[in-house]
Design a protein around this nucleic acid. Structure first.
Lengths: 350, 350
DNA sequence: GAACATTATGGTAGCGCTACCAAATAACCC
DNA sequence: GGGTTATTTGGTAGCGCTACCATAATGTTC
C-alpha cells in the first residue's frame, strides 16, 4: 500500500543524508508536504484533526525540520549573529548571555563572532555571517567600516547596535551613555571632596575600546568645569586584567604620590588595584580612593567594597534581543533607541 | 549583447532578496556558475587565467556566497554548534573562547546553545541544531539522553565531548580527569599536614554539575585511604558565586570550628571565602587553609594567593576545535581521546 | 437554495548552490 | 597525425523546504 512513486526513496543523490524529510511525514500523515509545513509553522491555518495526525507522524518518525532548506526557501534562518570585539572580556559575555537566553526562548540561535577590535575583521565577518541568511544581526558599537554599514542597511533586516548610544545608527540602538557614566563617577569623586583625580584605563586608542575614551572625555569635562587638574591619564594598551590594574595603580602612585582618587576604566582594573592595595597595606579610601565602572559582583566582596558605576550588562543583552524580536514578529517599536542607563553604586572605596 | 534569457533578472520570487548570486558573477566573468563555484571552493581545479577573471568579478560585484544554499546543496554548512550547560559560568566561556578562536580561523562559525544543566533541553537543542546541517558538534560532558546520543552517532559527523574524560563517548573526547583533580588537591592538603579537611561545593546533585561530584569522590577516596575523616561535605544548589563561597565558608566554620582546611569545588567559591576571611581578619592559611580548582587569574591577586588546581580551559577549547578540524579536513587522528591535564599550583593559601 | 465570503488543502516552482557526469580542450606519445 | 590520457569547463538535476496561486470544502446571507 502506498508504493513510492517516481523513483522511490533511496535514490537520494548526495552521501546518504538519511534524515527524515517533510515528505516522509506527509506520507505518514496522508497529507501534502506543504500542509505539513503549515502545520508546523502556522498551526492555526490547519484544521485540528489534520494537525493532530501530522503531529503524531512527526513524533513517530522523529522528524526534525531542516532549517537550512527552510531558510533557503523563505530567505531567513532563525539565526542571529552576535558580533563582539572579544570573548575574553566579561562584559561582552554577560551581554551575550542576556541575548542568548532571550533569543533561545523565542526559538532563535545565536551565532558567535569576534573581531578582536579590528574593524576590517568586523566587516569581513559581517559579510560572512550574512551568508547564513540570518534573521537579524547584533553588533557592538556604532563605528563600522562604511562598506559594512552600507551592506547592512541595504540588507533591510533588523540590526541592533549595542553598548553605546548615538547617531547615526544602522537600524536600532541599545546602549549606555559612556560620556555620562564617566562624568557621573568624576562628579561623585569631586562631591566626596577629592581634587587630585586620575583616570586609569587601557586600550583607549581609537583602534581598541573607544568607549573607555568616551568615559574619559566625560570625566575630563567634569573636572575641567570644576577647575581641577583634568588631564591626569594613565593608560596602557593591553587587555584589561587584574594584573594591569595592579600595574596602573603602582605606576600612578609612583608618578603622582599626591593623588587622592583613581577613576578606573573598569572594575577589573579597579579590583586589581584594590587587591594590590590590600597586599601593600595601602588604605582605601583614606590613602587613595578608587572608583570603577561596570558593577562586577567581585566589587561587592572586596575590602573595601568597590564604588562603581553599575551597568546592566545582562539587561542590555535582553533588551537588544527584545527589540530584535519585536521587529521580527512584525510588531511596531516604541522607539528604536533604548538608553539602558547606569547607576552609581556608592560603596566603601571612595 | 548577452540579453538575459529565460525571463531575466528581477522576476525573483521572494521578497526582493537583492543579493548578488553566483550567477551574476558567472555572467560578469563569462563563465558558468559551476565554474565560479569551483574557483571559490577548489581553486586548484580552475586554470589561473579564468580564476583571476572570476576573482575580479567577485570583487567587482561584492559577491558573498550564500552559505545556506551551499549548505543545502552539499549537506554541510560551516557551522559548529557548541552546547554548554550555562553561559554564566566563566569556565565554559573560556572553553568557548578557545573553540571559537580556533574554528573562526579555519572559517567555521560557532553556534551557541545552553542547556541550563537540563538533559532534556540538551536533547531538544541537539535536535534543533542538527537542523542547521552543521559540520560537527561540540557538547559538554559525557552524559546525555539516550535519544540524543543515538541521533548523534547515527548522524555520522564529528562530535567532540568536552570537560570530562571517560567511556563511552559518542565520537571524540577532550577533557580532564575530575576525580584525579579532586584527589590531587586532597593529597596536597594532607601533605601539608592538614587533617580535618572539608569539601565545599555547589550544584553537585546529579541534575547539575556532576563533575564537581566526581572531584569530591576523588577527594574523599584520598582522605579515606589516609584514615582521616572523609565525609565532610558542605554544599548548596545555587550557581557558584563569590557570595556563595562566602556563605559556605561561614557555614562550615560555624558547623565545624575545628576545621583545618577547606577544599572548594572551584576558584569562585574559594575566592569568595578568602575575601570574607580578609574582611573578618581570619588568617589564611594559619587559621584555615583554602584550596580551589580552575586557576582563575583572580586567585593570583588575592592575599594570600590561592592554591588551586589549574585547568587549561582555553587550551581545552582549542584542543577540542583542533580535533574537530582534523576530522573535518579528512586527516586521521592520533587518538580520539585527549586528556588535557591539570596542574597543582601551590601558592600561599594552603 | 443561489451567490458570495471564508477557510482548508494541494500543486508548482524555485530559493542559490554544488554533486555528478558529459563534453571540450590541451598535453602527450609513439 | 591518430590515438590516448590528463585537464578544464559546462549542463543538469536536485538538496528540503516554503511562497504563491489554484482549487476544494465549508460557512454565511438573504
Amino acid at each position: 500500500m502506498a508504493t513510492d512513486k517516481e523513483g522511490a526513496r533511496g535514490r537520494r543523490r548526495h552521501r546518504g543524508n538519511n534524515r527524515v524529510t517533510i515528505e516522509d511525514v506527509a506520507k505518514e500523515a496522508g497529507a501534502a508536504p506543504i500542509t505539513v509545513s503549515r502545520a508546523l509553522n502556522t498551526p492555526e491555518k490547519v484544521s485540528a484533526r489534520l494537525r493532530e495526525r501530522i503531529d503524531r507522524a512527526v513524533e513517530a518518525l522523529g522528524y526534525v525540520p531542516n532549517l537550512i532548506a527552510g531558510g533557503l526557501a523563505s530567505a531567513g534562518t532563525r539565526v542571529i549573529p552576535v558580533v563582539v570585539p572579544s570573548l575574553s572580556i566579561l562584559t561582552f559575555i554577560e551581554v551575550i548571555h542576556g541575548i542568548q537566553q532571550t533569543l533561545e526562548a523565542a526559538g532563535y540561535q545565536v551565532l558567535l563572532g569576534s573581531t578582536d577590535f579590528d574593524l576590517d575583521r568586523e566587516a569581513a565577518l559581517i559579510d560572512s555571517v550574512l551568508g547564513y541568511s540570518p534573521s537579524g544581526v547584533i553588533l557592538t558599537g556604532l563605528r563600522h567600516r562604511e562598506r559594512a554599514a552600507h551592506r547592512l542597511k541595504a540588507w533591510g533586516r533588523p540590526v541592533v547596535e549595542i553598548m553605546e548610544l548615538g547617531e547615526p545608527c544602522i537600524d536600532m540602538n541599545v546602549g549606555i551613555d559612556n560620556a555620562g557614566a564617566g562624568a557621573c563617577m568624576a562628579q561623585h569623586l569631586l562631591d566626596r571632596g577629592y581634587r587630585r583625580i586620575a583616570f586609569l584605563g587601557t586600550g583607549m586608542g581609537m583602534a581598541r575600546d573607544y568607549r573607555a575614551r568616551e568615559r574619559y572625555e566625560g570625566h575630563r569635562e567634569v573636572l575641567e568645569a570644576a577647575g581641577v587638574e583634568s588631564g591626569l591619564l594613565f593608560q596602557h594598551d593591553e587587555p584589561s586584567s587584574y594584573e594591569l590594574g595592579r600595574q596602573l595603580f603602582l605606576e600612578a602612585l609612583e608618578a603622582r604620590p599626591d593623588l587622592e582618587a583613581m577613576h578606573f576604566a573598569n572594575d577589573n582594573l579597579a579590583a586589581g588595584a584594590i587587591l594590590e592595595a590590600n597586599r601593600r597595606g595601602i588604605r582605601v579610601p583614606q590613602d587613595i580612593a578608587i572608583g570603577g565602572y561596570l558593577g562586577l559582583s567581585l566589587g561587592e566582596h572586596l575590602t573595601p567594597r568597590l564604588t562603581t558605576v553599575t551597568v546592566p550588562r545582562f539587561g542590555m543583552g535582553v533588551e537588544a534581543a527584545r527589540l530584535l524580536l519585536t521587529r521580527l514578529e512584525g510588531r511596531s517599536l516604541a522607539s528604536s533607541r533604548v538608553d539602558i542607563g547606569y547607576e552609581l553604586s556608592v560603596r566603601e572605596s571612595t
